[in-house]
Simulated assay, not measured.
Amino acid sequence: MKTLLIVDASPNDQGSNTRGLTAAYADKWQSANPQGRVIRRDVSGDAVQPLSQATIGAFYTPEDQRSPEQRRLVAQSDSLVDELFAADEIVLGSPMHNFSVSGGMKAWIDQICRVGRTFNYTEQGPKGALGGRRAVIVASSGGDYSEGTPLADLNHNDTYLQTVLGFIGISDVQVVSAAGVAINDQSVEQARERLLALA
């Protein structure tokens, strides 16, 4: 069964551009894959626990040696990683916050970048474990920071997510951005058209 993972990071429950776009993508994908499964993961706010010294220690403790408390600490991370492995395609809804990803998206990234699970260190350097999957980054920003604009160098949202996805082995990555939503009323609809063409 084909599986799509949608990760929404916008803190806005209502009126979020990225949430509206990822929902439209999921609807079209489901229509094209009626037997497929859509996993929806909301990582906004405090939905994902931030890393702590104790959690990092639990990550590096062999599974059969973890205490009950350590197993509790890694439970959410294990669930998030399992969702990635279950998915054939991943869509990240990531509005730009202060030139980068939101706090919720960063917390999710910290929980899914796991040595021994989503990547391993080799003599040739880090090697991701999630190859063969496709990802779509659905971004939005108040100003226009898209490639070729004078402010493009300030866009650390799209480039950071591409780097993270590549690090865990996902090289087939598309970016669809609703750029400059504060000044261009048509940017969301233009992004929707580009996005649905990928579904």
Rank of each mutant, 00 (worst) to 15 (best):
G57P: 02
G20W: 00
D78W: 13
P62Y: 03
G36P: 10
R194N: 13
A129S: 12
Q53F: 13
Q174T: 15
Q190H: 13
G128K: 02
A152F: 08
T122L: 06
F85L: 06
R194M: 08
D13C: 14
I112T: 15
V91P: 03
V176G: 07
P34Q: 11
L161A: 03
L151E: 05
V43E: 06
N12K: 15
A129C: 10
T61M: 05
V81D: 01
V91A: 08
Q53H: 14
S67N: 01
D88V: 07
A178F: 04
E147Y: 11
D78M: 14
R71W: 00
A32P: 01
A152H: 08
C113L: 15
D42F: 05
Y25F: 15
G142F: 00
R71I: 00
N12P: 08
K106C: 02
L21D: 05
R66F: 01
D46F: 11
G93I: 10
V164Y: 01
A24W: 10
Q190N: 13
G143T: 12
P11E: 09
E89D: 05
Y60I: 03
A24Y: 11
Q65E: 14
C113A: 15
V48N: 07
V43A: 03
T149H: 01
I109E: 05
G15Q: 09
R194A: 13
V7Y: 05
A135K: 03
K106D: 00
Q186H: 10
G131A: 15
A191E: 04
G15C: 07
I170M: 05
P11V: 06
G45Y: 12
Y121T: 11
N157V: 02
L154T: 07
S100T: 15
Y121A: 12
A54E: 10
I6T: 09
V188S: 09
G45D: 09
D158G: 08
T122V: 07
S146P: 08
G166P: 01
I168P: 05
E193H: 15
R71S: 04
G36K: 01
G180A: 08
L165K: 00
T163W: 15
G143I: 06
S31E: 15
L92G: 04
T55R: 00
A135Q: 04
L161F: 03
E123D: 14
Q111G: 08
L51N: 07
Q49T: 13
P68E: 00
T3E: 10
S10H: 11
V43M: 04
R134G: 07
Y121W: 13
E123G: 15
A54T: 00
V101E: 02
G132E: 06
T149N: 02
P11Y: 13
D42S: 06
L92W: 14
G125I: 09
Q35A: 15
K2Q: 10
N98K: 02
G103F: 07
